[in-house]
Amino acid sequence: MHRFANPTRFLRLAAAVLPFSAAVAALCLGAGLVWGLFFAPPDYQQGDTVRIMFIHVPAAMMAMGVYAGMAISSAIALIWRHAIADLIAKASAPIGATFCFICLLTGSLWGKPMWGTWWVWDARLTSMLIMLFIYLGYMALWQAFDDQTKAARAAAILALVGAINLPVIKFSVEWWNTLHQPASLITMDGPKIHSSLLWPLLLMIVGFGAYYLTVLIFRVRAEVHQRRTRMLRMAQADRHAAMQAAE
């Protein structure tokens, strides 16, 4: 694992992976889009609104998946002081938050024709909203520190505390939801996914995963370069100070 802690080596690996992940993302998302919008049959219950699922469900899955990845890399960063794991966690957060937001937005747009209102405090939507708050808190904590090493460790602790808490939150929200669910509402558990809808959904999920990897590589690359700039500047400032002291 420490082989990839070296930024240069990591950048080389990332550059090798990038074309593949970008190609997979473009192909799968493109094919999923065409299939989902044009060829997949409308659901017998939900009609054409089921096409929203092809973007809603992958976004929800990846929002959770990205958090899991963020928590794992935070643990690696804390335990082994791994230099790149920090940056992977940091770079993941805006991507996960975007997925969260897409999931909420499409959920709302799906809810309007299905439930008759733009927002229902459905267990899954509510958990996703809380997850978005946790992502935002994590990103804000990174921003709050000047010292990047401290920011990295604080954010890693928060990511892990959040990871422990998220299942509890999810469970409690589900419990709360069963208490308050009015019987007249249709729940989103509804659609039994027909196999003709499964393939475009699968394509979209793979596409979202590859998209995450692609964007992650760009963002980690940006972080590596920014860190190098900071270190060079610090070295220059030190040298400058030393020269002034000598005079």
Partner: peptide, 29 residues
């Protein structure tokens, strides 16, 4: 986490509130 941090108070609220939700739910129910 936020001790000694710029605008620590607001940040503290943002971080802690989501983590309080389970206690709220079980306490109220």
């Amino acid at each position: 986490l936020t001790v000694g941090v710029r605008r620590g108070g607001v940040l503290l609220t943002l971080i802690v509130t989501p983590l309080y939700i389970p206690v709220l739910i079980f306490g109220v129910s």
